[in-house]
Design a protein around this nucleic acid. Structure first.
Lengths: 144, 144
DNA sequence: TTAAGTGCAAAATCTTTGCAAATGT
DNA sequence: ACATTTGCAAAGATTTTGCACTTAA
């Protein structure tokens, strides 16, 4: 039986190569989004940096993962939770970027409120990033 | 009598130099945020690229301008509307990034709703970017 | 006068591109 | 076997750093 990631690749007509599966594994086993530098480090010399760029680009275009830009303008990636397709790239949940540990959390549970935009502005995607301190870092801070 | 920008520089103990005043002039005369490449182009060879980096960094640290990262991860800058200080860097309004003309609008008028975060998450800044099509580009599109 | 700020050159990064070799189907 | 995908080398772009010269106060 195929593992989850392999099904995903099949579904998008992508070959099941080592770099692609490795990237999916890493992203899948984390609930928070992972930065590109992080990915590079974890993958080590198994996957070339250039390949990583290309894998991430392909995945994003196919709607398999989505990109979140953090405080420093660094790209972070997470697997799309629901039904993202090549054309409809839903990303309607709130992200939380911790200033201390720099982790990005996808807060799927948080309801994104409907905005009342001035007339003429047609929204398609809403990117809602909250910066602050996450539970783990808050705790450490209190103990100190 | 001093122009507005010069007062701002004075207030933050910054010398009134040509590069700084030029940057403030450009940012002030635009209602939407300006990308760093744009700034470079407008400033031309009057201001060194390295100086621009440093001016923007200083301004951001002092709370004179704030940075918004757009779709491509490019830094955009706008003068802070209200009372940003070095420590309290409020940026609680909604930005709108047009996919067609790539302009970033600061929608000060739009009310940013209060979010209910899971316990343990302490927010300080909320960055709310809406992607879509702006009034100008919408119109052109309809006419075509 | 003198501390802060600029400009140039050069290093360090980051990202993209071209092409031959390797890999999945 | 063949189209995709990878890895390497090298080009291009972006950002940072060091240091001597300039400028605002």
């Amino acid at each position: 039986m195929l593992k989850g990631f392999e099904k995903i690749l099949e579904k998008h007509d992508l070959k099941k190569t080592k770099p692609r599966i490795s990237v999916l594994e890493i992203l899948a086993e984390r609930k928070s989004a992972t930065s590109q530098p992080d990915l590079e480090q974890v993958l080590g010399k198994d996957v070339d940096r250039v390949t990583l760029y290309r894998v991430l680009k392909t995945f994003e275009e196919k709607g398999i993962i989505h990109k979140i830009i953090d405080l420093n303008g660094t790209a972070n990636y997470a697997v799309c939770s629901s039904s993202c397709t090549e054309h409809q790239h839903h990303d309607q949940h709130v992200h939380f970027n911790c200033r201390v540990c720099l982790q990005i959390y996808c807060l799927d549970s948080v309801h994104v409120p409907q905005l009342q935009l001035p007339s003429g502005f047609t929204p398609d995607t809403v990117n809602h990033i909250v910066y602050g301190t996450c539970p783990g870092c808050n705790e450490k801070h209190l103990q100190a």
